[in-house]
Every structure is written in C-alpha cells, then in structure tokens.
C-alpha cells in the first residue's frame, strides 16, 4: 500500500526535541519531543504541550535529525578515562578545619 492510500500526509511533520528552562538561572533540560511543521510552530507546540503546568520560562527546540549523539559502543573509551581524575573534584583536597568558606 502506498502512503497516500493510507491517507498519511506524504510528508509527516518533522520531529523536534524540546529543551525547557524550568526557572530563571537554570539550564535548559530535555523535556521530550513533538511534531511541528516549522521552528516557530515547534516552539508554540512545546509551550502548549510541555509547559501546561508552569514547567518553563524558556524553550529551545531543535529538529531531531540535527542532534549528533555519541556512540554508546565507545562509552568505555569516552568516559572511563575521567574516572581516575578525582583531583578534578573539590573533595579530593583535605583542608584543615579552621579554613572556612572554601
């Protein structure tokens, strides 16, 4: 059966990823995805779908096909080397108790 017979739009509205800042000062966080014909509509749809319960003060959208993701098969070489660099974390350093506010 062709798409047309099934009464699909020949071109489905593209998929977008939605990122929402939940309140001023915080990062945008992935909220979910949705379909929209263009970027402007994607932002409005995101407002209507993902901020109905006051979940956001700012919205980013990006068409899903533009997201580049790391390969989970390379997770070992990508992320494990960071695990022995504990000196990057402040708790690695012992300071005398008298030192305050550091």
């Amino acid at each position: 059966m062709t798409n047309d017979k099934l009464n699909n739009s020949k071109n489905e509205w593209p998929l977008w990823e939605v990122f929402i800042r939940s309140k001023a000062g915080l990062d945008h966080k992935h909220a979910g995805s949705l379909h929209a014909a263009d970027a402007q509509m994607a932002i409005e749809n995101a407002r209507d779908v993902y901020t109905r319960r006051m979940e956001g003060v700012s919205i980013w959208v990006v068409e899903s096909k533009h997201i580049q993701a790391s390969d989970p098969g390379e997770a070992d070489s990508m992320y494990d080397p960071a695990s022995d660099k504990i000196y990057r974390h402040p708790t690695f350093y012992n300071l005398p108790d008298e030192v305050k506010y550091m």
């Binding site: 509205w13 949705l34 379909h35 929209a36 409005e44 749809n45 209507d48 779908v49 109905r52």
Partner: peptide, 11 residues
C-alpha cells in the same frame, strides 16, 4: 488534525 494542535486548541 494532529495531536499537538488538539492540545493547543484545548488550551
């Protein structure tokens, strides 16, 4: 006509 707009119109 599509879920996203169903939700928008209900708002």
């Amino acid at each position: 006509p599509i879920l996203e707009q169903d939700i928008a119109l209900t708002n």
